[in-house]
């Protein structure tokens, strides 16, 4: 194992992806969650013959299928505390060779089947809610490449800025959100050896605003790094953002 070092190389790497999430409530405890990533667009700088060129790749990303089951629920007046384990399968539906000139870890798809297990919890009240989650992801080698197993820990706190009094007739709620995401990944492996510049730790803090109604929600969240270490010379994470749109398609079970 290489020692983690602070990465200094930006490399001009950019990633832009549209993530679709469909949550379907089978019962009041069991929910199926499908995540799709498409299209995924990546760009990176490469130096050849003393010249820097811009390389891009675009294509379909992977699909994640998860099942979440609530094992503990404590309801109070205007509040609910829930604990739910989650298992999931990463399906390599993405393009892992969209642009052969770009290294494998920066292609739209991973080309790896994977499994994931998580423990999620949420404490929701009328005026604020908090969430916490830990997750482990494991990948199976595919086409000579294996993404590093990853541990993630996420926490979030949302607070209602408006309105100041919650009633059933309000048009929507404006939340201030503050989230934090930590990930620790093993280096990827190519042909049985560690791929340089992959794996390591990344810690983000994410302030944001969220407008939520019964039919839809819109959120904007900035992703700001406070700590990053990469095994070898990897890409530096400068900043990111999430623009999130939610549309509620209520199921017969719940409505």
């Amino acid at each position: 194992m290489e020692n983690p070092t602070l990465s200094t190389a930006g490399g001009g790497y950019q990633n832009l992806a549209t993530q679709g999430v469909l949550v379907y409530g089978i019962t009041s405890q069991l929910a199926l969650i499908t995540q799709t990533y498409q299209p995924v667009w990546t760009a990176t700088d490469a130096t050849a013959g003393g010249k820097t060129v811009r390389l891009t790749a675009v294509g379909a990303g992977d699909t994640i299928q998860e099942a979440r089951y609530t094992v503990y629920q404590l309801d109070g007046i205007g509040s609910t505390l829930r604990v739910a384990p989650l298992i999931g399968l990463a399906i390599p539906t993405g393009m892992d060779d969209s642009n052969p000139a770009i290294r494998r870890s920066e292609q739209p798809g991973t080309g790896n089947w994977g499994g994931r297990a998580a423990l999620t919890s949420s404490w929701q009240t009328l005026y604020w809610n908090a969430e916490a989650e830990i997750e482990y992801r494991d990948y199976i080698p595919g086409a000579g490449y294996q993404f590093g197993n990853t541990f993630l820990a996420n926490a979030a706190f949302h607070y209602v800025l408006w309105p100041t009094r919650i009633t059933p007739n309000i048009p929507g709620e404006l939340f201030a959100s503050f989230e934090t995401n930590f990930s620790s990944a093993r280096p990827n492996r190519a042909a049985g050896a560690s791929a340089p510049g992959t794996g390591g730790q990344l810690w983000l803090v994410d302030p944001g605003l969220d407008w939520s109604t019964s039919g839809y929600g819109v959120a904007f969240t900035a992703l700001l790094p406070v700590l990053q270490q990469v095994y070898g010379q990897g890409r530096r994470y400068d900043w990111g953002f999430l623009f999130h749109i939610r549309i509620s398609l209520y199921t017969p079970h719940h409505w």
Binding site: G76, S214, W255
Partner: peptide, 17 residues
């Protein structure tokens, strides 16, 4: 009737129904 667990105004519709 006391109903526990209603933590968002937008889930009231389902309860009423």
């Amino acid at each position: 009737v006391i109903v526990k667990g209603v933590a968002t105004p937008f889930s009231v519709f389902g309860l009423l129904k």
